[in-house]
Design a protein around this nucleic acid. Structure first.
Lengths: 214, 214
DNA sequence: TCGCATGTCAACCATTTGGTTAAAACAAAA
DNA sequence: TTTTGTTTTAACCAAATGGTTGACATGCGA
């Protein structure tokens, strides 16, 4: 499973990478405030002082991890969207690529969710900055594909914004609640990876039929 | 908006209720570890010592808040599911009721998500206990309705477990990521409540067409 | 070899955090 | 009024937490 776009900022040294990974994991699980610097240091197998040597403070460390993760998360939209002839194929490819991305980068998504739970102040700041810089956010590309498919009469006339939100919801939510899903869903408990693949099928089937012309 | 099932355990005094509410809010936003006892005390407008007078420790407070919230959350499935003649109506009523429940109890859902992010150890414990006691978890009722609708030929032959998970995903996820949605989605920014209602329509439309026979 | 920049660490510090205590209000029965 | 039990509070404490420091290592060009 090769990464599209590296896991860490390019200029990082080995130590910085270790710290970054450990911090991402810890922030993703415990949230900005719940995370413990000592826990990050332990997971990165370095002295706590190193954290402050490389990333001044907890706040700065969080900011760096969050900013990079958000760029990565946003970039995933475009990367998951190949050039397919039909909308049907476009949807299939997107679900496949996007779900794979989350499977390989669960912590990134957890961090995004965690920020939302906490009120999303950092998130709002970064989003607005992105919006100003690029004039529109990445999910836009998906919105446009759906608009085009509607215009071409390939699918029913649906609200593209709502539809995109629904697609993302279904692709992400079962990862968010993975522990619950593992307990409740027999198939997920037995083999998570297989379950994820089955879920791709189901999602495509459900959403495609939900959009297709009668 | 009347509550089906009270917001707090019945036997609570006024002070306990204040504490419970404040704790739920704080735990929902910051997570089990990120939450601060002082912040809960401040929000409940009481002395910090009262927290320990009524709920011994942070751990016990969290357990009590979590256990009650989870029962409430699970009960919402059944409560949102009226007795409708067709599956079409059943789906409509469920989405409507369930989304309303989350709108009125966002913190409860946030707490569930937060637990999942953190690994869901408390969640797993409680779920398993419920499973043993009741032989099946509440989402079961929805699964059964879908199975019945499939058997009756009212909808396409879909996997009911996957379908339920998809319905729940779409009903919950936009609440989970409300801060993000508010920034990205123009309509949500303007009037959230109206957006939620529009979303109910969209979700019903998308999912019903996704399930209906061609 | 020396000097200097970069990394690394144990020990330390100030503040915050969960939690306790002993005394004071308060209320209702005796 | 006295007594008895509950509720509330300010002051306090030990441990944990984010953050600092000064010494020590390591590599490398001069």
């Amino acid at each position: 499973m090769p990464d599209a776009g590296s896991q860490h900022p390019d200029a990082y040294s080995d130590t910085e990478r270790q710290i970054f990974d450990a911090a991402l994991q810890e922030f993703a699980r415990k949230g900005r405030d719940g995370a413990r610097m000592q826990a990050i240091a332990d997971a990165a197998d370095i002295n706590k002082a190193m954290l402050h040597y490389y990333f001044r403070s907890k706040e700065r460390l969080y900011d760096e991890v969050f900013a990079f993760s958000m760029r990565r998360f946003m970039a995933a939209f475009g990367e998951s969207l190949g050039a397919a002839p039909t909308f049907r194929e476009t949807l299939r490819v997107f679900i496949d690529g996007y779900v794979d991305f989350i499977r390989d980068n669960r912590a990134v998504m957890q961090l995004m969710v965690s920020e939302n739970l906490a009120g999303g102040s950092a998130l709002g700041r970064h989003l607005r900055r992105m919006q100003e810089a690029e004039h529109a956010l990445p999910p836009r590309v998906l919105v446009e594909r759906i608009e085009a498919a509607v215009d071409a009469g390939e699918i029913r006339p649906v609200d593209p914004h709502h539809t995109v939100l629904s697609v993302i919801s279904t692709c992400l939510f079962f990862f968010v609640t993975e522990p619950t899903v593992r307990v409740i869903h027999p198939a997920a408990r037995a083999d998570w990876s297989e379950f994820v693949d089955a879920r791709k099928e189901h999602l495509f089937d459900l959403i495609y039929h939900g959009l297709a012309r009668p």
